[in-house]
Design a protein around this nucleic acid. Structure first.
Length: 456
RNA sequence: GGCGACGUGGCCGAGUGGCUAGGCAGAGGACUGCAAAUCCUCGUACGGCGGUUCGAAUCCGCCCGUCGCCUCCA
């Protein structure tokens, strides 16, 4: 398959370096519950993982938690809890939300605070190599020591310095240098280090965790577009310098960001953050995933008020096709060309919108060919392969028993009553029963072999 | 200021030179007692102005508009 690589700004053929695909995806900072942007990113890399497995590859995926930083400390103080408690709570929330969205867990979910020895060791290596220096109990990366610095975000140090105000309160040699280790203030979480009590900088965590769990060179490094600079630029510089490897990651894969109607960015300051919890209270995980996958992963995804409703409606037709039971006999329909369309779309830089078009065509073919008396078992197999890669469960939405909630037995009884009314041509009575069922959230369909029903 | 992305039919959203995207909404038809679902058919879209070309949504130039990053960020 071909994948777009932010480092080269082109698409090229993806081949893992070793027997297993090594993939590192930047996870969340545990200062709050996950929002839809986190869900979007997690779903994208979950689908990439699933698709690589579909292609027969073994995948080891690591997704970290940044569980110590300024935002966590501030938020914990504000909420009157310890940073550890806050992180613990939000890590639990992350798993709760992502599990609900059917995002498969990574092979390893390391936490920065549990990787302090690895982080310190890497910082020491950087100092030994002359790429880092201690100043005022903190340690900084010497950006000028890396001739390649800026290659991922394609900006030069001059670009960065121009038009940017660096705070120079710290004792940096160069304003563009960044912290590897931060001396802690009183009352802040702190670990012992050769430079005194402190905590790791943001970027070095990922370098250390990727190295610890995946090795010195990896295949795919993922994250949101907003992480390219400075996070990934710095992570790349550190790792390539410390480990003497180039490239640290074959592919840098970045997902586009979630936007709201009116091209507005979702952000705390605008007060428009939609949490995963809020979204899944109203919509199925399938609808959220389908919405995410209906636009290309590198494009910005614009969430409008009808987005999830549209996805729910679209999903119903996929479920209907999924519920069709193939005839045992009949001419066999060959689903290979449709499967091929799916594969070609996914092979082309994970083009899920085109892959979804193939999925809907599979659904239409199921209905059409089954209606024509053909054997659709191969279509059903392809449908299940595709929905598996997309992580769609196709479960009927669990609906609370509505006002005048109704049991299955009662539904069967009402349908029987209606059948009687229909044979007696009492159409008004029959329609009244149908209306009543509809109000209770039951849809019925009259088919050649009788009436079937489902909760809507 | 630097770097980058984008502007597609009512809405969402694929598509990098000729060949059906797809979804939602809508219209007509088939089926049905009527529906629902399903199936068939339909919209001839590509910000504007030029240019290149036999041919452009797709390449080039200019203009208009929108957005992202530039040490909080998936």
């Amino acid at each position: 398959m071909r994948l777009y690589n932010t480092l080269t700004r082109t698409r090229h053929e993806f081949t893992p370096l070793g027997e297993e695909v090594l993939m590192y995806v930047c996870g969340v900072t545990t200062n709050d519950r996950p929002h839809l942007g986190h869900a979007l990113s997690s779903i994208v890399f979950d689908v990439l993982h699933r698709y690589l497995e579909f292609k027969g590859l073994k995948v080891k995926r690591v997704q970290n938690f940044t569980d110590v930083d300024d935002k966590i400390i501030n938020r914990a103080n504000q909420d009157g809890v310890t940073p550890e408690e806050l992180s613990e709570r939000n890590i639990a929330a992350f798993f709760e939300d992502m599990d609900a969205l059917n995002v498969r867990r990574a092979t390893v979910h390391p936490r920065a605070t549990e990787e302090i020895p690895e982080i310190i060791a890497m910082i020491e290596t950087l100092i030994e190599r002359g790429a880092a220096y201690e100043a005022d109990d903190s340690v900084y990366f010497r950006v000028r020591s890396d001739a390649d610095y800026g290659k991922l975000s394609r900006r030069t140090l001059e670009d960065m310095l121009e038009g940017t105000r660096f705070d120079n309160e710290e004792h940096k040699e160069d304003p563009a240098d960044f912290a590897l280790w931060k001396a802690s203030k009183a009352g802040e979480p702190a670990w012992d280090s050769p430079w005194g009590q402190g905590r790791p900088g943001w970027h070095i965590e990922c370098s250390a965790m990727a190295n610890h769990h995946l090795g010195r060179q990896i295949d795919i490094h993922g994250g949101g577009l907003d992480l390219i600079f400075p996070h990934h630029e710095n992570e790349l510089a550190q790792t390539e310098t410390a480990l003497g490897v180039n490239p640290f990651s074959q592919f840098w894969v970045h997902n586009g960001l979630l936007k709201l109607a009116g091209d507005e960015k979702m952000s705390k300051s605008l007060g428009n953050v939609v949490t995963v919890q809020d979204a899944r209270a109203k919509y199925s995980s399938d609808a959220i995933r389908l919405w995410v996958l209906q636009s290309h992963y590198r494009s910005p995804s614009v969430l409008i008020d009808t987005s999830f409703d549209q996805a729910e409606t679209a999903l119903r037709s996929i479920r209907i096709a999924n519920n069709v039971t193939p005839h045992s006999g009949g001419e066999k329909f060959d689903a290979t060309p449709l499967r091929q369309r799916f594969v070609e779309a996914m092979d082309d830089d994970l083009n899920t919108p085109r892959a979804i078009a193939a999925l809907f065509d599979v659904c239409h073919a199921i209905n059409r060919e089954h209606g024509a008396g053909h054997d659709i078992s191969s279509l059903k197999n392809v449908l299940s392969e595709i929905t598996g890669v997309f992580g769609l469960t196709l479960e009927e939405p669990e609906q609370e028993e509505q006002v005048g909630g109704i049991t299955a037995d009662e539904v069967e009884q009402l349908i029987a009553d209606r059948a009687t009314a229909r044979t007696e041509r009492r159409w008004a009575d029959a329609d009244a029963i149908r209306d009543r069922l509809q109000e209770a959230g039951i849809a019925i369909a009259d088919g050649p072999s009788g009436t079937t029903w489902s909760r809507i």
